[in-house]
């Protein structure tokens, strides 16, 4: 009897302990909510349309490129390995410079109207733009470099005062072929043709090279500016970023890396 009681006690204690362990080791069922680390991007674009028209002064429906507040910047790794070499182009514009227009213009301001563009915020298929830079106006803040190795290395000629040099030896230009929405931002994916000259030779005819490049365009939405004096006006901005391989354009300088980054910051107003 005593033995049976001990066994009963043992069984009871084992059952109780077993139940305790079972409960303590059981996880409560909880709803598993998948973690969304990167929520899908939701675009918030407006319907602004900006067109240059004839850039008539005072016509608020025609947008003018504000060159003095815009810039075309470049950067590349020095000798392909060190820190960045940076600079800007002093002369640039937004005009489709056709072969016929590749000339030298006796002018101090813009030689051609900056009218070769259109921007449709919600309809990128209609958006397009053209642009150019004068290679010899690259400005690194080091005159010795800008008028020295830059001119020789880029196979161009020195700046002549009062002349806007859009000749093929001094011109790099872009022309968009496709603009579409960027699914991950409010910006746009831009496919463009970059055209630059071949290595200059006094004996061989120049054969400009064109490469298709993909860049990213951001739109800084229209805002109204109220100056201290004068009438209020509207402004907006476009920022284009892209990279290209300068070896594709037969640039052999070892002072720069293969990859060159370009950033175009264009400001427009409707004054």
């Amino acid at each position: 009897m005593k033995h049976l009681n001990s066994k009963t006690l043992l069984i009871a204690l084992l059952i109780i302990s077993g139940y305790g362990y079972f409960v303590s080791c059981t996880r409560n069922d909880s709803l598993i909510v998948p973690l969304q680390l990167n929520p899908p991007f939701t675009a918030s674009r407006g319907n602004n349309v900006h067109l240059p028209g004839n850039m008539t002064a005072g016509n608020t429906t025609e947008w003018k490129m504000d060159k003095s507040h815009s810039s075309v910047l470049w950067s590349t790794n020095y000798v392909g390995a060190a820190g960045l070499l940076t600079g800007r182009f002093n002369q640039f514009g937004m005009h489709d410079v056709t072969t016929a227009k590749m000339l030298t213009y006796p002018a101090n301001g813009q030689p051609l109207k900056d009218t070769s563009w259109a921007f449709y915020e919600s309809d990128p298929a209609k958006t397009y733009f053209n642009g150019y830079v004068q290679i010899n106006t690259s400005n690194t803040g080091e005159p010795g470099r800008d008028t020295g190795c830059n001119v020789a290395g880029m196979n161009t000629v020195k700046i002549r005062q009062g002349i806007q040099n859009l000749s093929d030896t001094n011109l790099a230009k872009i022309k968009t072929t496709k603009v579409e929405f960027d699914p991950n931002s409010n910006g746009y994916i831009v496919t463009l043709d970059l055209t630059w000259h071949n290595k200059y030779s006094s004996t061989v005819a120049l054969t400009p090279i064109t490469k298709s490049i993909v860049g990213h365009l951001s739109y800084v939405t229209k805002k109204t500016v109220t100056p201290a004096t004068g009438t209020p006006y509207d402004v907006f901005g476009l920022q284009l970023k892209f990279s290209f391989n300068c070896r594709d354009f037969e640039i052999t300088s070892t002072s720069i890396s293969d990859k060159i980054d370009i950033e175009c910051n264009m400001n427009f107003n409707n004054k």
């Binding site: 001990s6 066994k7 006690l9 043992l10 204690l13 084992l14």
Partner: peptide, 8 residues
């Protein structure tokens, strides 16, 4: 539990 185990 030890008690019951030992006894058994």
């Amino acid at each position: 539990l030890l008690y019951a185990l030992v006894i058994v």
